[in-house]
């Protein structure tokens, strides 16, 4: 049974999330502010943390930063609209994904599933996401039975997105992995390669979805 920690200052929100998560078999603990959240995280060792960005006192970002000093537990950010910059910051200091309030329960549960699935040690040189198969050994990718003809940059890009399949990857995170050491603003180049990659992926059940101001998410059917 997975254990989830909810850190949110709204009591009703915590209660609702608890009901939702308990109905899906989670064991739930909760905290109403950041400091207590960190204590609970240390005490209960949750499998996943739901963290509200707009916490009073010790803010959500600060809680995340301190949590990441000793824990790599998957963290899902609960945010509101118009917090794009803060969301990006949170993702870059180690949050795994976010949902925007008001969120649907199906969306929330799906995100929780995806972020808990990550991080298993990889034993095969292949990453599979839906119909997409990326072979890291031979630097090949195929969708269904069809091999994709990719440039090295496109392959690197697809690799990053597939490793994070279903999860958001910020623009900076992509750039750091695809063009390590690059200092100039590469957003233009990134868009160009994404555009090419999208054309090659076509309409075969694997999509690269853009989330304005944040980054990209590889979605599979």
């Amino acid at each position: 049974m997975s254990k989830a920690l909810i850190i949110d200052d709204e009591q009703q929100m915590r209660r609702l999330l608890r009901m939702l998560l308990e109905s899906r078999g989670y064991e739930v603990c909760e905290a109403d502010e950041g400091q207590r959240g960190l204590q609970e995280a240390a005490f209960h060792r949750p499998d996943v943390v739901l963290l509200d960005l707009g916490l009073p006192g010790l803010g959500g970002l600060e809680v995340l930063k301190r949590l990441r000093e000793w824990s790599d537990v998957p963290v899902l950010i609960l945010s509101v609209r118009d917090q794009e910059a803060t969301k990006v910051q949170a993702l870059e200091i180690g949050a795994d994904d976010y949902v925007t309030k008001p969120f649907g329960s199906a969306e929330l549960l799906a995100r929780l599933d995806v972020i808990q699935r990550r991080r298993g040690p990889r034993h095969t040189p292949e990453i599979i996401a839906g119909a997409l198969k990326v072979d890291l050994l031979h630097h090949e990718a195929q969708i269904g039975d069809e091999a994709l003809k990719l440039t090295p940059t496109e392959f690197a890009l697809l690799k990053v997105l597939t490793e994070h399949a279903g999860r958001i990857v910020t623009q900076n995170q992509i750039v750091k992995q695809v063009w390590p050491g690059q200092s100039s603003d590469p957003s233009e180049g990134l868009r160009v390669h994404i555009n090419h990659l999208r054309k090659k992926l076509g309409d075969r059940g694997v999509r690269i979805v853009n989330e304005p101001g944040i980054g990209y998410r590889l979605e599979t059917e």
Binding site: L16, M19, V80, P102, G104, S105
Partner: peptide, 18 residues
């Protein structure tokens, strides 16, 4: 103000969703 107005709506919608 935005936070105060949106929070109850979020709660209602999440509850309805459940």
């Amino acid at each position: 103000v935005s936070h105060e107005l949106k929070t109850p709506i979020t709660i209602i919608r999440t509850a309805l969703d459940g």
